[in-house]
Design a protein around this nucleic acid. Structure first.
Lengths: 245, 245
DNA sequence: CGTTGAGTTGACCATCGTCAACAGGAGTGG
DNA sequence: CCACTCCTGTTGACGATGGTCAACTCAACG
């Protein structure tokens, strides 16, 4: 059920699939990520600090409580971020999509664990280096501040969902949220990709797999959604929106 | 039940109970608050920007969605921070205690509403001014970054509580958390002050008043707590800790 | 002394969790 | 190629946790 037997953080020889200096000009998520703050020359300097790696699905990226040595910018793929309780209960605190940034916190240990769900390309940075870089670069610093503020608001949204919405409302809110996030990174579509499994959605929404499954099934029966492999297609977005007040 | 008829943000003539220039040297929470980052002379400069005000209980400090004109440092008292749903459901996203800072987010509207629960002394700052000040003062900036990182971790703790703990565990976690927070600001005691009402605790923990009341009653019956007005006294902290895994 | 609001307790019930069975697909090995 | 396992997802039956509704106490207040 959880991650005991996942490949560990010293992942398989991570493939560096870019020449350094090729810079970030071709990067598909640059404009959505922290890098958007930077001018051409700073971008090149930042790129020199980056290690561009590809991590396969089911890999543990880092572990809750471990020293936070690196920060990551997600270029493609999906990562789940989670907290574990001693008895095995898991709360997923977020899904990281392309353009997202991991390691905004200043704490020197990871507040959550991270596992790659869907093969991911990442820009990996050394924390000390990026911190120094940000200290000299107020645009980047400001952008980091912006990102972390945004994270905090997202976290509060999630508190409302977990504390005050019923199962159907939670699922509807989740689906609309994914829809909107994909739209914001240029993947607007009536088909909402769901790279995570039902158990991940459940652990994100404070429900069980069965409840998530039943709820989605009911929405499908009511012709609000069409369930397709690794995704759902929106049939009636108005009714979907109506479900989450 | 909620805040419709509270006095509004243009609160009663806020009493400024300090001469400007008296500076922050006597401030009881300075060492716990963002100000701890500042040297003597910067502290004086910051103090010139501050409006030191006292706000009575039951006052709305600011409203969810309204322009975020000010930020606040809490000197004494308690403030509840909450989100409202259109149908009246409320989720309290946090309680602000002395030393806490409101308005860390860079968003220009308030992500939550704030109401004073217990008469509060506040340092009020103009957002634009404090932003300028922080831009020129890397210690303060760093401290703000630290505070907001911490907020984010707290928010994730709360997600675990709301998503994965049962009622009794939530209440136990809440009580221990309050205990620890008071201890950190120099009010360590076996008596946990609870300035908020049961409904606030319920809306913070994603429960109902009845469940909170019943749970606390049961803990009292089990000789884990003693219920006293506006507080509970810890009788058996080990068993209390055992209740929240 | 009546009113109001907070807190508590009880009775009942709904939502969602638990347990179980099953279907379908992917991977494995004979 | 087929049998087998494993994993994910779905569905059903049942039950427990916690929500709803209501009554009551008590303190504060006019």
């Amino acid at each position: 059920m959880n991650s005991a037997q996942l490949p560990h953080a010293n992942y398989p020889p991570p493939c560096e699939h870019r020449r350094p200096g090729e810079a970030c000009s071709k990067c598909g998520v640059r404009l959505f990520s922290i890098c958007a703050a930077l001018e051409r020359e700073d971008l090149v300097r930042l790129d020199r600090l980056a290690r561009h790696i590809t991590i396969p699905a089911k890999t543990q990226l880092f572990e809750q409580g471990a020293p936070a040595d690196h920060v990551y910018n997600i270029v493609s793929g999906t990562v789940r971020l989670f907290r574990l309780l001693s008895d095995g209960r898991r709360q997923i605190v977020g899904f990281a999509l392309p353009g997202d940034f991991l390691g905004l916190s200043l704490a020197d240990t990871n507040a959550y664990g991270a596992e790659v769900i869907e093969d991911a390309e990442l820009c990996q940075f050394d924390r000390a280096q990026i911190t120094r870089f940000a200290n000299d670069n107020s645009e980047l610093m400001h952008r980091l501040h912006e990102f972390i503020s945004h994270e905090l608001i997202i976290a509060q949204d999630q508190m409302v969902i977990l504390g005050r919405l019923r199962a159907e409302e939670r699922v509807a809110a989740f689906l609309l949220n994914m829809h909107e996030r994909f739209a914001r990174i240029g993947r607007r579509s009536v088909t909402i990709q769901l790279p995570m499994q039902r158990a991940d959605i459940a652990d994100y929404l404070g429900l069980t797999v069965e409840t998530v499954s039943r709820t989605i099934s009911r929405m499908a029966r009511d012709r609000i959604l069409l369930v397709v492999p690794d995704a759902v297609r929106i049939l009636d977005i108005e009714r979907l929106k109506a479900l989450c007040a």
